[in-house]
Design a protein around this nucleic acid. Sequence first.
DNA 1: TATATTACTGAAATCGATTTCTAATAGTAG
DNA 2: CTACTATTAGAAATCGATTTCAGTAATATA
Lengths: 340, 340
Amino acid sequence: MLNKKVTSLEVAKLAGVSQSAVSRVFTPGASSSKKTNELVRKAALDLGYRPNILARSLITGKTKIIGLVVAYLDNYFYPEALELLSGALQKNGYHVLIFMATNTSGNIDNVVEEILDYQVDGIIAASVGMSTNLASRCSDVGVPVVLFNRTQDDKRLSAVTSDNELGGQKIAQFLCDNDHKRIGYIAGWEGASTQRDREKGFTDELKKNGQNIFAREVGNFNLDEARQAARKMFTANQIPDAVFVVNDHMAFAVMDVMRYELGLKIPEDVSVVGYDDVPIAKWLAYSLTTVRQRANRMVDETVSILIDSIENNSTKPRRIAIDGPLILRGSAKILDNYGV
Amino acid sequence: MLNKKVTSLEVAKLAGVSQSAVSRVFTPGASSSKKTNELVRKAALDLGYRPNILARSLITGKTKIIGLVVAYLDNYFYPEALELLSGALQKNGYHVLIFMATNTSGNIDNVVEEILDYQVDGIIAASVGMSTNLASRCSDVGVPVVLFNRTQDDKRLSAVTSDNELGGQKIAQFLCDNDHKRIGYIAGWEGASTQRDREKGFTDELKKNGQNIFAREVGNFNLDEARQAARKMFTANQIPDAVFVVNDHMAFAVMDVMRYELGLKIPEDVSVVGYDDVPIAKWLAYSLTTVRQRANRMVDETVSILIDSIENNSTKPRRIAIDGPLILRGSAKILDNYGV
DNA sequence: TATATTACTGAAATCGATTTCTAATAGTAG
DNA sequence: CTACTATTAGAAATCGATTTCAGTAATATA
């Protein structure tokens, strides 16, 4: 019933060569004669032999596994990113071992310890932070770490983000240019660099235009809290005429509350702008004006940093911020003479 | 700079015991004295030692890795399922190695070969099929396979789905009960069991109510094709007064076309029903009546089948279809006297 | 034809753990 | 105090590959 696993030794026996010879045939860059090659490949095919990656890893020290820590799969930017990441790594012969850093498991550090147990070649931390302690463990054992869609100060860590500060600026500029006078902001979790950078760019640029944030609430990257924030902001005495919600995912929730609970018209009563340009943003029900995070560019950079670190032992951490355009859709008012 | 990896031998040296002793301390179920235990744990902590899972796997034959093949992360049922799956497996000490079976890589079989190279303990195939050839390779090497949200005839494969046929019936019954007379259907990819089963239950139950499908188009689980299908169906001479779209994801696209391109009112002009109850279905912009796939139950079953197969060598494949309720929301008309 | 190079080969060491086997020690019963 | 059983310890085999090493065969050079 069980054929059990086929080992290189059995192939060697069938092919009438040494076990080393079999290994060499399957090791790129090793030398073997045409004849051995044929013999071995034929025997391997007959037996259905494929090299055991784990055994190989044990001696080469490379597993071709990348550990991916991810927290918010309900924000649809991440499934998209995950798909691209996994695809790109696959193309380079790597695979992704997933670790959920959900509320359930609490501490990220434990998760990363587990990752290291698997002798991964590298780690991608998507929208989660890392303790300094842990960062040093990774750098000690020579496992490169790339933060995806998050930065933090630790100099040992590479990071790839969109240019969040610039994105915030673009939004502020856009709203001011289109004559909005009471501009609100719904924030994400304050611990996240995305939140901080977007807000900084946003408020800085408002100031340059002689404005301040007119109302501010916190949604913590959580839909329920975002709805709560919207209710509060838009039942006040004087409501904003525009609101920037720190990401698309929360912006959708905010729009629903505004339209279906509070009877506000978008963009006639209030303009709404998000950030990410997830696929839903262009669905006609929302048609959300937003800054695009170029997931494919971000993924390309992440993968190339990682592979470069692994294969060329390049140890210098890099930080990359990718510019993304403001995508104009129906959720924000535009003056007739804007951009002409 | 690089502390390099710490091995059990170094710990043994520091603790003044044999390497076997170190191993025993970290092997659950092995015996060691309290004293050795303390010595070893202290030394391990000092050096930052953790056992190398790969080396362990080599000899135990268990990797604690589950291969997950997944195709459609843009259907938001899957990120949710992935999150639950990964979480549940993590709780049991397993981790998920992801393999994208996207259009890019074409053939699933290659992907599964790659999975097997990693000596995974089990495989979850989410909404993808497997060739018989491959199924036998898996059963040969004793790797259990569970199909998630898909069935196929091969008897060696376990499968967990929602009760798609029953779900289809419920929808038909509901639409008939609420006085719809021209009921349309927008289908998914014909190769998928979910598509076939849902349609079968649906049409069977329509027949019992003396009706047939009034109009039928194919959307192939693809948003653009779904939109195309909607345009065709709802610009015909006589349009349906209700439509069942094979999954939520496509239903949203269909609703957008109906409302924003064709000016139809939902549910006044047409009732719309979906299937899955993804999180977006309850967003007020869609408020979609749909059959719930109980992702958590499906995941629990999947994980328990898998772990049972792995740890108890239970080899009998199982098929599970989980009943899910019809969730009534605003996208479908309901008669005043319905359900009273 | 003799010699220097190169291309391959198989035996054996290695990676880092678990596990079997044998021996020693501790604990218990009579 | 002896005999017997449980615990525990270390040495060595093992998992399935890669890689070093040393030697042989094939080819190139003089």
